[in-house]
Design a protein around this nucleic acid. Sequence first.
RNA 1: GGGGCAGUGGUCUAGCCUGGUUAUGACAACUCCCUUACACGGAGUAGGUCAGCGGUUCAACUCCGCUCUGCCCCA
Length: 822
Amino acid sequence: MSDFVPKLTEKTYDPQKQDLMLFKKWQEEKIFAFNKSSGKPIFSIDTPPPYANAPWHMGGAIHYSQIDMIARYKRMAGYEILFPMCLDRNGLPIEVQAEKKFKISMHDVPREDFLNMCRQLLDEVGDQILDICKILGFSNNSLEWDEIYKTDEEQYRTLTQSTFIKLFKEGQIYEDDRPNNYCTRCKTTIADNEIDYKSGSHTLYDIRFKVKETGEDLIISTSRPELIPAIGVVIFNPKDERYQYLGGKTVITPLFEDEVPIMAHHYAQMEYGTGIMMVCAYGDSSDVQIFRELKLNPKTIIDTSGKITDKVPEYAGLKVKEAKKEIADKLEAEGYVVDKADAPHNFPICSRCKTLVEFLAMPEYYLKQVEYLPKLHEYAQEMEFFPPFMRQVWVDWLNTVSIDWPISRRRYYGTEVPVWYCKSCNHPNLPEPGNYYQPWKNDPPFESCQKCDSSDGFIGDLRTFDTWMDSSLSEIYTIMHPHNKKDETLFNELIQRPYICDVRPSAKDIVRTWLHYTMLRGLQLYNKPAFNCAWISGFVVDSKGEKLSKSAGSTIKPENMIEKYGGDAVRFYGAAEASHGSDIRFNQQRLQGISKFINKFYNIAKFLSRFPIITNKSEISLQPADEWILSELARVVEEAKSGYEIFDFQIPAKSLRNFTWETFASHYVELVKGRAYNRNNSYEEREQKAAWYTLHKVMKELTIVFAPIIPFVTDLIYRGIYDKTVHLEKYPEGKEIIDKQQYLEITPTLLDLNSAIWKYKKSKQLPLNTPIEQVYMPEILFPLAKDLASMHAIETLVKEKDEMPEGDIISINETENIVIRI
RNA sequence: GGGGCAGUGGUCUAGCCUGGUUAUGACAACUCCCUUACACGGAGUAGGUCAGCGGUUCAACUCCGCUCUGCCCCA
């Protein structure tokens, strides 16, 4: 026995000690690098570029772990994996953060200086995120700084600008001066999906107006008295009997004494206040809509910094809030306020900085999307969604889209709008696609105006794009820039496929933005769906079910959890904890439980690593117990595969763990220990070697099928015992493990029997290795008789019940009994 | 107001599509055991009638309807 020296020597698995060493090996050996000439079919993953403004919380770590499992499974299934790492570095959040950190306002420092401040923050956080990627063992093509892509680098922004130029020339983009959501703090127009809602309450004033024609009073409820000078129309519901006679008449506003028409419009709710509603330029999005429908001229009284304009001289320069108070006070003082009460209200706020959104008309560029909705609905039905119910999230959004996409922003840290305006005729001049343009600081690459031929010079556009203009091209960038180097040949080859990229992994909250816009642009640019399938995950929330970002604190930072329990444990936890698409309530205790399994797995491997590896099958004679466990293995390998195929990692995680810990470790290993060691020399060499063969066969395949979920411990084991990396192995087929699955029907009885004997000995307060004189057991277990006798130290196994009249009769389950005599 | 998802022992979770023996597993708890891979281990015990109500059915956790609760999205 002492001849058997384990190849794995560490007493326990210590992730802190092993993981980084393994990760370094993967890097040196470049085993995950993309190799387009491998001859394998390419599988492309549109990695979501993590936004580099804040380090990951557990949600990010777990989300990306699962995306890595997609890559690892597909790699083992025979695909060449295009799986970039990347960082998203454009947009508002980083600007807001830079302003806070450096205590400046973006508009008060030179643009170039501000950009550098943003970059400094982005670099710091970017490094922190990449560090977590490493300790979680991600298999991106590369995690080297130069080989990961960043959305703010020149070649990425060149791509964004090139698509703008192309679509502009095709007439898909137009400029319009329509009212839109405007954040007065960020000083930019924002799109509908950049709006959040905050619940709170506001004061509802019942204010007395006068009808010009009849002289009667008209009471109107409003929460925004400061907009009285901006009223465009006063409406009542067409079904409202009370006010029919007012149609076509005129109302005179209090204080300002403007004359405003009264009309019927379905938007007025009869039950709300008095049923009369004032429509202003602009109180909310419905005002915008009504103005548009009724073709009224808006009188905009709020400027871009959220102050009252000189169109209302008495209050010019006041902030909206201040004006509201002053006007409300004056209305009250002069007796115009009939009643006032607080009412609950959902306020639209900027999703980035939480400032109240106003509605202002600004000239902005728009990308057409409304006319593409029917085709996008088709795509939504055709594209595969994992899990399927997530399809509805996009369909719901498609049903609410009603206006084209405003794509320009009055911000700095983003891709510049590549347009110069002619000083003479103001015509927008666009450069040729293919280069990166910065109109705010550079001269245009042309001398004279394309329209009027004037060479008086140009004014560069100061705006940038909505960051989704960049993000919605990520799948194109992915297939065009492996290792962040442009490869047109590869792109031309891949773009022939019926979709642009294989899979879009995403969290459910950005379906309406990232997935939606990417699908739109795929349609516009290449007339095909951007993806073959979309993989959508839920969130990681805290133990109360609330979002992590708010309440997490510092205790459950992913780096702390990984340090404590290991990257594999965090990955496994994320895979096993919830079915695909559901939220995970983070629970550290359960994570700790997982780390115990990882160690158990290592120890099983360490145990059997002491036995020689048998490769020549002619040396062995497989015993029924061997055929049984190989059959069980083949079954669980197929079951795991069914989960991997739909990227639902809970299925392999749970089934493989159960097989490993229960079936394999507790039953098979115990069953064949005696044979593997050949205790008492009671076995033939061929039988002993069969045990060795089977132990290794199970371990080897198990390591392979577990590798996508727990890449560190599996590779440690595989390299330690089988001298190569597990990560380039092929995912096994059940048939390759055993030709014909056998003995599967004995599994429940076998487990029941073992349990019964353990329980029996325990009830007699005997150690488990106490010899048993005689046992009679169910017939279907006879084939395993010899191994069972060895496992339980049984001296005689009786096959005929009659031959053993004396002994305790124990029922092991509903139908079967055993007789036992110590 | 509309839509989506969910409500299973202390905690988390499987099963529900394709109704049918004592409802899966894990974590935690409790008891016993350091048996030569592992105490980050092993054996065992206790704990749920599947949110509520009604319906379909010989039979419902599983199908249908309503109600309640939670989360998310939209208005």
